[in-house]
Amino acid sequence: MSFVIVQVIVGGLLLGAVYALFSSGLTLVWGMMNVVNFAHGDFVMLGMYVAYLVYSLLGAGPLIGAPLAMLVLATLGVVVYFSLIRDIMKGPMLAQILGTFGLALLLRYSVFWWFGANFLTLPENVVGGTLDLFGIRIQAARLLAGIVALVVTLGLHLLLTRTSLGSKMLAVAEDSTAAQLMGIRPDSMQAVAWAIAAGATGLAGALIATFFYIVPTVGETLAIVAFVTVSLGGFGSVPGALVAGLLIGVIESLSGYLIGAIYQDIVVYSLFLGFLWFRPQGLMGKS
C-alpha cells in the first residue's frame, strides 16, 4: 500500500470525525423527539460566527470561543425549543419541516444582514501547525476537532446510558405519557435535550471555524452531509453517527483520490441508498 493512500485514509478519518461532530446534535433531537431540524446546518454556522466574534473582539482562540459557542447555542436551543419546537412537535411532520426550514432562513439571513456576505476566516495561528508523524501530515486544528468529536460522542453516549438524566430523557423519548406518569416532566427533558444538542453543534461550529471559511451560507453545505451521516448511523444513535461519519469521510477521501473528486459524492450517495435498501434502520438504529 502506497504511502499516499495512508495519508488519504488519515485525512478521511479526520474529515469523518468532523462530520460526526456536527451530526451528533442532529441525531440526538431526531432520535429523542422525532424532529428533523432543517436549521441544523445554520446552528453550526452560528457556532462559527461566535468563534469569529470571540477572536475579533477578545483576540481569543477556541479555548474560550468553543465553550462560549456551546453556551450561546445551548441557550438558543432552549429558546427555540420553548418558542417553536414544543408546539410544532404536536403538529404533523410537515409542520416541523416548515418551521425549522423557516428558522434556517431566518438565522442564515439575520447573520447575513449583520455580518455581510464576505468570507471570513480565523487566522492560522489560532490553532496552528501541522504534526508530522513518520511522513503522515496532520493539521493540528483538524486533530483537535477529531479528538473533541470522540470525547463528545463518548460523553453523550455515557450521559444517555449511565446517568439518571439520560434514562429520564430516554424514557421521554420512548413514551412521554408513561414518563409523565412516573413524575418526569417531558417538557424539561426535551428542553435539556435541545440544549445539549444545540450546544454540541455550536461547539462543532467553533472548532470547524479554525480550519474552514466562515460565511452565512456555509450551513447549507454541511446540513446535507449531516442528514446522510445521521440516517446512515441510525436516527438517535450517537455512536452510529460517529461510525457513519468516519465511514463517509474515508469513502469520500478514497474515492476522491482514486476515482476523482467530482465523483466522490456520487459514490457516497449511491452506497448510502444501496445500504438503506438492505438495512433501512441504519447502522446502529433500532428497527
Binding site: 410544532i88 423557516g102 428558522l103 432562513l105 431566518l106
Partner: peptide, 13 residues
C-alpha cells in the same frame, strides 16, 4: 429571506 423565513416560522408555529 429574513421576512420570508419569519413568516414561515410563524405560520408553522
Amino acid at each position: 429571506f429574513v421576512v420570508y423565513g419569519a413568516i414561515i416560522v410563524l405560520i408553522a408555529r
